Computed example of a mutant assay.
Amino acid sequence: MSRRAERLAPVVDMALKAEREAARQLGLAQNQLLQAQRKLAELERFRGDYQQQWIERGQQGVSGQWLMNYQRFLSQLEAAVEQQNRSLDWQREVVDKARGAWQEKYARLEGLRKLVERYREEARLLEDKREQKQLDEFAQRLRPSAY
C-alpha cells in the first residue's frame, strides 16, 4: 500500500464512522416518521368511528346534552388530528435533513475511498515501472556485447 493511502486510513475510518452514525440517525428518524403516520391513521380511524356513532345515534334521536358533548369531543379530536398532521410534517422535515446529512457523509466517504484507490493505483504503477527498469537493466547486463 502506498504511504499516502496509509496516511489516509484514519481519515477514512473516521468518515466511515460518521457515515454509519448518519445512517443510524436516518433510520431513527424514519422510524419516528412511521410511528407518526400510524398515530395519525389511528386518530383518523377513531374520528371516523366516532362520526359513525353520530349517524347511528342521530337516527334514534339524541338529547341536547349528548349533542354538546359530541361536538366538544369531536372538536378535541379534530384538534388532535390537526396537531398530529403538524407533527407528521415536522417529522418529514427531520427525515429529509437526516437523509441530506447521510448523503453528505456517504459522498465524503466515497470520495476518500476513490482517493485512496487512486493513490494505490499510482503506487502500483510506480512499482511496475521500477520493476520494469530493473528487468531492463538486468537484461542489458546479460546481453553479450558486440564489441
Score class of each variant (00 low, 15 high):
M1A: 15
S2V: 08
A5K: 02
R7Y: 10
A15E: 04
K17S: 11
A18M: 01
E21M: 07
Q25F: 03
L28D: 15
Q30S: 15
Q30K: 15
N31K: 13
L33P: 00
L34A: 10
R38E: 13
R38S: 10
K39C: 05
E42P: 09
F46C: 07
D49L: 12
Q53T: 01
W54D: 03
W54M: 01
R57G: 00
Q59L: 05
S63G: 15
G64K: 09
G64R: 10
W66R: 08
M68I: 11
M68N: 13
Y70L: 01
Q71D: 09
Q71H: 05
L74A: 09
L77M: 04
L77Y: 01
Q83H: 12
Q83E: 14
R86V: 07
S87K: 11
D89I: 01
V95H: 10
K97S: 14
G100A: 14
K105F: 01
G111K: 09
L112A: 02
R113G: 15
L115V: 09
E117W: 04
R124Y: 04
L125A: 12
L125K: 14
L126M: 02
E127N: 07
R130E: 13
K133Y: 08
D136H: 09
F138N: 08
A139L: 12
A139V: 12
R141A: 13
P144T: 10
